Simulated assay, not measured.
Amino acid sequence: MTATVEVRNLVKRFGALEAVRDVSFQLPEGETVALVGHNGAGKTTVMKLMLGLIRPTEGCVRVLGEDPAAGEFAARRRLGYLPESVSFNTGLTGRETIAFYARLKREPIRNALSLLDRVGLTHAADRRVGTYSKGMRQRLGLAQALLGSPRVLLLDEPTTGLDPALRQSFYEIVQELRSGGATVLLSSHALTELEERVGRVIIMNHGVKVADGTMDELRLIARLPTRIRMKVTESGLSRLHDWLEPVSDWRRINGHIVEVDAAPQEKIEILRRATSANAPVEDLDVIPPTLDELYAHFLRSQERAS
């Protein structure tokens, strides 16, 4: 699969501060990738390097085959970017704002105005941006990022200020772009909402890439326990100790609900017992390690190693 973004041995220093340290990865077309990390982990710096807003101290970045730090970065027209904190001229209306950015990107005004409808701002198109709520400004920022059907879309905390319905609508737009072959890089602290919506996760900590892979790949590497939650029958409660032996890491959490932390090598055996004909189990749920748990694990592992 063709890589739209290539990052090789990237280093960025601001004086004595090393914001990014020897980071490498590729982003293929048609992939949605989450870039996660705490504040100061280097996520926004990496995005700015991809955009050519700052130059790398060492290493290189190629976006759509070009160096974004070069004087003539023609690929910029095929990039979309939504910064963490959007800021617009508050005296302009939403319609005037999107038309302004369309002219900068040399896109037809008519196409640009249709984006206001796509992000749910048609009703406020002729209101001044100064009257917009935070969520409305975020939607306007998303509209300008979508100008020109970008092949690479960089989104920094894109769902901040959006209500649940608009978040769902946002991810539907992301899915449409990905299906059309666009590369989407999402940076967010909202790990729960990213978990089922991205194909790959890159975790950064203190400027270093500490993990990179699909959720299944990260779970395989981390080897964290899987939670198995079972609803046990009334008669089964009295023989829990015998039935679960030799599993020791289990607990009753509410009435007939029992939860087991199953190590990778124990999971199949526990499920076999829970689904056998004589098992006192009425229902069960298998809950694999979440992105929040994986994120915490990889950060702890890096800190122990350093």
Results as ranks from 00 to 15, higher is better:
residue 11 V to A: 11
residue 42 G to A: 02
residue 267 K to G: 05
residue 90 T to V: 15
residue 98 I to C: 00
residue 15 G to N: 03
residue 48 K to Y: 14
residue 148 G to W: 05
residue 23 V to C: 12
residue 18 E to W: 04
residue 145 A to Q: 02
residue 301 S to G: 14
residue 103 R to D: 12
residue 108 P to H: 03
residue 102 A to R: 02
residue 259 E to Y: 03
residue 76 R to C: 09
residue 203 I to P: 07
residue 129 V to Q: 01
residue 88 F to D: 04
residue 139 R to V: 06
residue 275 T to Q: 04
residue 49 L to R: 01
residue 219 R to V: 07
residue 228 I to N: 09
residue 293 E to C: 10
residue 258 V to P: 01
residue 91 G to N: 12
residue 45 T to A: 02
residue 214 T to P: 08
residue 249 D to S: 10
residue 129 V to P: 01
residue 223 R to T: 12
residue 82 L to T: 06
residue 135 G to S: 07
residue 230 M to K: 00
residue 76 R to D: 02
residue 201 V to Q: 10
residue 201 V to M: 02
residue 106 R to N: 13
residue 285 D to G: 08
residue 261 D to I: 01
residue 125 A to I: 02
residue 172 E to D: 15
residue 233 T to W: 01
residue 17 L to H: 14
residue 30 G to F: 04
residue 286 V to W: 10
residue 153 L to R: 02
residue 276 S to G: 14
residue 119 V to D: 00
residue 193 E to P: 06
residue 41 A to P: 00
residue 23 V to W: 01
residue 246 P to A: 09
residue 136 M to A: 05
residue 104 L to F: 04
residue 97 T to N: 03
residue 77 R to V: 13
residue 178 R to D: 07
residue 78 R to G: 02
residue 90 T to D: 15
residue 180 G to I: 03
residue 29 E to H: 06
residue 75 A to P: 08
residue 273 R to G: 08
residue 198 V to R: 00
residue 226 T to L: 07
residue 138 Q to E: 13
residue 275 T to V: 12
residue 44 T to E: 06
residue 273 R to W: 13
residue 206 H to P: 02
residue 197 R to V: 08
residue 16 A to W: 11
residue 17 L to E: 10
residue 294 L to D: 06
residue 81 Y to W: 13
residue 105 K to Q: 11
residue 102 A to S: 05
residue 232 V to E: 05
residue 274 A to L: 04
residue 142 L to P: 07
residue 216 D to S: 08
residue 233 T to Y: 14
residue 89 N to I: 12
residue 176 E to F: 14
residue 247 V to L: 14
residue 281 V to F: 13
residue 194 L to M: 13
residue 31 E to N: 07
residue 284 L to Y: 10
residue 30 G to P: 00
residue 37 G to M: 08
residue 159 T to A: 05
residue 271 L to N: 07
residue 59 G to M: 02
residue 20 V to L: 10
residue 185 L to Y: 02
residue 103 R to T: 01
residue 122 T to V: 13
residue 228 I to A: 10
residue 212 D to E: 00
residue 134 K to V: 02
residue 244 L to C: 06
residue 66 E to G: 04
residue 158 P to M: 03
residue 212 D to N: 08
residue 248 S to L: 12
residue 274 A to D: 02
residue 158 P to I: 09
residue 45 T to R: 01
residue 147 L to Q: 05
residue 15 G to M: 05
residue 157 E to W: 10
residue 271 L to T: 05
residue 235 S to T: 13
residue 287 I to D: 13
residue 247 V to K: 04
residue 137 R to Y: 08
residue 69 A to D: 06
residue 237 L to R: 12
residue 95 R to C: 04
residue 19 A to D: 09
residue 131 T to W: 09
residue 139 R to S: 11
residue 96 E to D: 09
residue 30 G to Y: 06
residue 193 E to H: 09
residue 250 W to Q: 07
